[in-house]
Nucleic acid binder design. Structure first.
Lengths: 190, 190
DNA sequence: ACCTGAACACCGTTCAAGT
DNA sequence: ACCTGAACACCGTTCAAGT
């Protein structure tokens, strides 16, 4: 229901109707709406299969966040729940463990490795979030600037860049990941 | 009210009560809740003052996203609105214009410059979002793993890293920004 | 031009009652 | 153990009526 109708449209009463049952029957199985949505988020997060990547830290980090991204994109309706979750199952720390181990092994300090993980995870989830809600809504300058001559003149580079469509989210994510890994490599050398 | 009570607690009826007026009076000034929240998001976004940074692209990009971050952090209650906004005022494209101009001037292709902007903006807004909701809730392994011996053994690097508290969001953001800019410098050289 | 009161269609949730 | 029906406290929104 979340993937089909979206997060905003979901309600316990609609769920009950979908199950052919009275709204209150749900409370025999779960303590409330919040607990139900948290359980969904936990289920999606727990479903991620992180491979044990041997070899260099770059491959390990790349594989790890590609997996995280793929897991999230498989359940777009659950992404808002994951982002706003107050508690998630231990498997959410797998990418963190992998990243910290890889980067500390590569010579980064414990503190920088943690910051690098924070960088990678906000980037990855941010890209997923924008992709799901559509890089159109609110951020697509194409629709916002299309007819407005005055605004177009104020943002020439934006107008020029937007003509190079369609947008490739996969390629954009890979670009960002490559940039971050290159930057971490530079950080490591210092 | 948004900054004080948070996004979830806000309702038109509470707003009306706060104004000492009937809930329906609001509709004489705005078409509905969605429009009101959008107007708030637009106001916050429009309030960002981006400086014209001359000199190298690194300084321009750094200053630009520092300003975006500071603007968002000044109104934590509005950040969810900005992230979920369907349309935002033209000033949301100022960072995009600045970034594209700076990076294309530095030799990146138009497509890569756009991807770099996407990287920078998802990173910046992601960091802000986590900071606002508290890098504790859901992502802080300290609370999730504290008492659980079994889980602690499964994530040694996480447990070790978390002891280096307290977390410095400013420093973490600066670290990420530096890594991205270093990575873009490497990308530029190819 | 702005506000009010009553009403409607939705919510999540509680509680007593059923089987 | 699980479901139901009625009810409560909240929503956003419409509409006719007031000044």
């Amino acid at each position: 229901m979340l993937d089909r109708d979206g997060f905003e449209r979901f309600s316990l009463r609609r769920l009950a109707e979908h199950l052919g049952v009275t709204p209150m029957a749900v409370y025999n199985h779960i303590s409330g709406k919040e607990a139900l949505l948290r359980a969904v988020a936990e289920h999606v997060v727990a479903g991620a299969k992180y491979r044990a990547v041997r070899g260099d830290w770059r491959a390990a980090v790349r594989d790890c966040f590609r997996t995280l991204r793929r897991t999230c994109l498989a359940h777009p309706g659950a992404v808002p729940l994951i982002e706003s979750a107050e508690a998630l199952p231990p498997s959410i720390f797998r990418p963190m463990e992998i990243t910290l181990t890889a980067l500390e092994g590569a010579g980064l300090s414990s503190r920088d490795a943690l910051r690098a993980y924070f960088l990678l995870t906000t980037f990855t989830l941010g890209q997923v979030s924008y992709q799901i809600r559509g890089w159109g809504r609110g951020v697509d300058p194409g629709s916002a600037l299309r007819d407005d001559r005055l605004e177009r003149d104020a943002f020439p580079a934006v107008v020029q860049a937007v003509s190079s469509r369609p947008w490739d989210f996969d390629a954009s994510f890979e670009f960002g990941l490559a940039v971050i890994i290159a930057g971490l490599g530079a950080q490591r050398r210092e």
